[in-house]
């Protein structure tokens, strides 16, 4: 007689249940018989590298910062363009200089526009 092919899955599930339950039961028994639990205000407190935690963890961040982030990103990309230009500066023709100047002026104009719009003011 061949055993039911699913019997191995039943055995497997049984072992999978018992295997983690044994150490858990042993830990529970150990606590009951030998080691008394010693909770405390500081032991249960939030771990902040030893510093007392201040305020709540569920705080909200203001969304006004995204404008700064976008403007920063634009000028960050600008720096990437400027570095190879500066490295090859002495070997470049006048046209390249004018082109990068136009590029810079476009971005500066954008910054002036954002400034005029009041994007750099911290709105609450």
């Amino acid at each position: 007689m061949t055993p039911n092919p699913y019997i191995f899955i039943v055995i497997f599930v049984g072992v999978a249940l018992v295997f983690p339950l044994i150490p858990l039961a042993m830990a529970w028994l150990w606590r009951r018989v030998f080691q008394p639990p010693k909770p405390g205000a500081q032991k249960n407190a939030i771990y902040e590298c030893g510093v007392e935690s201040i305020g709540e963890a569920q705080i909200q961040f203001r969304s006004q910062y995204y404008l700064y982030a976008i403007i920063f990103l634009i000028f960050d990309v600008e720096a990437i363009f400027l570095v190879p230009f500066a490295v090859a500066f002495t070997g470049l023709p006048v046209g390249a200089f004018v082109a990068i100047l136009v590029f810079l002026l476009l971005l500066i104009e954008g910054l002036v526009w954002a400034w005029g719009k009041g994007c750099l003011n911290w709105a609450r």
Partner: peptide
């Protein structure tokens, strides 16, 4: 020192 004592307190027995 206070941080060290607090860290010690937060360690389990």
């Amino acid at each position: 020192a206070p941080q060290i004592v607090r860290l010690y307190n937060q360690m389990p027995d």
